[in-house]
Amino acid sequence: MKDEDVLNVDDLQPPLNTAERFYLPILYEGMVTTVRHMFGMWGAGKRVTVQYPEQKRSLRVENYRGVHRLNKEWYRGEDGTRQERVACVACFMCATACPAHCIHIVADESPWDDREKYPVRFDIDELRCIYCGMCEEACPVDAIELTAEFDLVGLSREEMIFDKEKLLEMYDRTKDIKPRKDPKITGYPTTADRLATAPAADAQAPEE
């Protein structure tokens, strides 16, 4: 090892001055700060804790990646009334894109004229999922989306495998908080839009 490589950390610190050597003035200064925070005096001490079950932190609903939901869409039924159906067309894009292989789809022939297939079963293992959002990105019809629900609990592993009904129910629960994403309707930027507007930031790689 060369001497030039030696770096003694102690010498980087300035020596203590006379008051500092007695520690007590410093102690006093520090105690003033601590007491200020403790009693919330002079602008300090605002409690930052979120009292979780009662209070919840406001999340950015648009891009928070929590539990999945399976969107529903309206269609005109045979009797001419508005009816709801699952938006998914069982294209398997999400299952293919999923890095954790947690999406399992069983497809069948669609009863509707405007599409060929629909999912008979749609299971997501929420314990396997890594909440990366790739399924959301892959979906051509924006049928699968990640909601802002993060308090996901269950008593068994089986319970944590969300089937189609549960995922659809998730949509019913969250549709008011987060409207179904549709670039034409909501105006959310697509991936392509974002890449187009921010070219410089990605190009600048850190040195070494």
Binding site: M1, K2, V6, D10
Partner: peptide, 24 residues
């Protein structure tokens, strides 16, 4: 302080600490 004693706690008789990444 006049004599120049440093109170940062440099231990004069310890071997020097190698800087990170230099390899011993």
């Amino acid at each position: 302080r006049q004599r120049g004693d440093r109170v940062t706690g440099r231990q004069g008789n310890l071997p020097a600490v190698p800087a990170a990444g230099s390899g011993a």
